[in-house]
Amino acid sequence: MSLQLLLPVILIFGVMFMMTRSQKKKQEAASQMRNEMQPGTGVRTIGGMYATVKEIQEDTVLLEVAPGVHAVYAKNAIGAVLDDAEYNRIVHGDTEEPDSPVVPDDASSLTDGHAAGDEKIDLDKKFTAADADAEETPAKDVEAKDAKNDGDTGAK
């Protein structure tokens, strides 16, 4: 066999090994998460339902989905084990401040919403042809027009 024929086969097996290795790590992490569940822990099922763990069996979990309403689920149907603060925030709407500060996705909280030198834009203002002319006129001419218009009564 030549090296040209052997190299693609080795490459394919290498890629397959890396893919199965990462999948196995994910499965082990999920299994460890499910094994760390304790009664009273808040969980989210793979269907998106939030519940509290009541009992843990070998392959099943008894969940309280509402006060007094219990359901039996397979252990592998648990999508995530939630900490108490997150579970209470999602299910009960608790708005307690988290221990760590919340960082926004953008830098909008760093300013008051306007960059230095920006002025607020009135969205109700209609743009007219006179406004377009004012934008093209140099600043001195605009000031002269404003001074001239100050004496006008506004009637045209």
Rank of each mutant, 00 (worst) to 15 (best):
E36D: 15
Q4R: 11
A147Q: 11
F17V: 03
L123I: 10
D124P: 01
I10E: 01
D133S: 13
V102A: 15
A129M: 12
M1I: 13
A129Y: 14
Q4Y: 04
G93E: 08
D150L: 11
M16V: 11
L63V: 12
L62R: 07
A147S: 02
S2W: 02
R89N: 12
G47Q: 14
V69N: 00
R89A: 15
V91R: 09
G113R: 03
A77H: 13
K54F: 01
A29G: 05
L123V: 02
M19A: 13
A51P: 04
S2C: 07
L63N: 00
A77G: 12
K26E: 14
Y87R: 05
G93L: 06
T111F: 01
N35I: 10
I46E: 15
M1D: 14
E136H: 07
P67I: 00
A71K: 07
V72I: 15
Q32I: 15
G93D: 01
T60I: 07
N88L: 14
L123W: 08
L6K: 13
E58R: 07
G93S: 06
E96P: 05
D105Y: 13
K140D: 09
E55L: 02
M1S: 04
A74Y: 10
A77F: 14
E28G: 10
K125E: 11
A51W: 07
T60C: 09
A51S: 14
E136N: 06
E28T: 15
M16C: 14
D152I: 01
V53G: 05
T20Y: 04
G47I: 10
Y87L: 04
D146P: 00
V81I: 13
D146G: 01
A85V: 01
A66T: 00
K24A: 15
L6Q: 15
L63W: 01
P98F: 02
L63I: 09
T137H: 00
H92F: 08
S22N: 05
H92M: 08
E143V: 12
K24Y: 09
P98Y: 12
L6W: 06
A51D: 13
L5Y: 00
A116H: 04
N88W: 03
T20Q: 08
D59L: 02
T45W: 09
M1Y: 05
M1P: 04
R21N: 09
F13G: 07
Q27V: 04
H92E: 15
N149A: 10
I90G: 04
K54R: 06
S100H: 05
K126G: 11
K140Y: 03
E119I: 12
K126E: 07
E58G: 01
T52R: 06
N35H: 14
A144F: 02
P8N: 09
H70T: 05
L6H: 06
I90M: 11
K156S: 10
A116V: 09
T60V: 03
E119C: 00
A66N: 03
K75C: 03
G79E: 06
S100K: 04
R44S: 12
M16Q: 13
M18Q: 09
L5P: 00
E58S: 09
R34T: 11
D150K: 00
A85T: 08
G151K: 00
D105F: 08
V142N: 02
V61G: 08
N88T: 03
V65R: 01
A129G: 06
E28L: 15
M37F: 07
T95E: 15
Y87G: 06
